[in-house]
Nucleic acid binder design. Structure first.
Lengths: 130, 130
DNA sequence: AGAAGACTACGAAGATCTTCGTACGATGCA
DNA sequence: TGCATCGTACGAAGATCTTCGTAGTCTTCT
């Protein structure tokens, strides 16, 4: 199969927009702007411009069949998260994923449920088909 | 105690320099440049400028007692790694550290040893003083 | 001493990111 | 029909990041 075309790593502002789209599903600029206005005081045309640029970059897809264009994330949330984690692992941990995991775990009190979930994942990895 | 003064998140180029300093210990610009030259074709004065700016930002400390100034990372590697992980967790995972851990683990075949290490850490977290 | 080399400081260019103002077309309503 | 509103497109400004050239100082070697 063809490799997934690589989108550039989203910037901070772009990631905020992606998170809204992942959370709400496809949205107009207006919807994203209303959603983010409380925490980020940014003009409407700024948001529009950002989302246009993100579309050019391949981070978003745009449906222009309506007057108000409808945008959605091109990649699923988990795919982008995986890329970001992989990127951080290579930039800051020399590629050692388990070091990142240890750092993340040791800096956070996880609940018993979360610990159990992680254990289960480890079990699957060990017992798995390789 | 006074809170640790926050340094800005290092950029990609800055993180590369930090990694050299963490690995080799305090270095001159020349040493860092020699170390990075193979993988990054960048001029000497570029490296110098970057490290001067990093010093201004508080990412590096500089010893000027010699003609060739000696730079070192202000934060320990693990501290910066923790900050970067925390930052990514908040920007991309809505603060859910365990989601990042799961993503990291599921996208990597860990060795038996690494899995064992993580299990041990989980044991400590559960049995810990809490 | 004088030339060559190494070092720091600094200004500025080019790229990217974020922001907004303005222009202009669509829609909807008095 | 005419006007206010909402939408997109786009240029450009300001901030930051990365890059390098040049100038000036200090050291070393012949």
């Amino acid at each position: 199969m063809p490799p997934t075309p690589q989108s550039p790593r989203p910037t901070d502002a772009e990631l905020e927009i992606l998170r809204v789209l992942w959370s709400l599903g496809p949205c107009t600029v207006r919807q994203v702007h209303d959603e983010l206005s409380p925490k980020r005081d940014v003009g409407y045309t700024t948001m529009l411009k950002l989302m246009q640029i993100m579309t050019d970059k391949g981070l978003l897809l745009r449906n222009e069949s309506q007057r108000s264009h409808v945008y959605r994330a091109r990649q699923k949330e988990t795919v982008t998260q995986k890329q970001l984690v992989k990127d951080l692992v290579s930039r800051a941990f020399g590629g050692a994923t388990e070091k990142l995991v240890m750092q993340a775990l040791s800096s956070k009190k996880a609940t018993a449920q979360e610990i159990a979930d992680i254990r289960k994942l480890l079990d699957e990895m060990e017992g798995g088909v390789q």
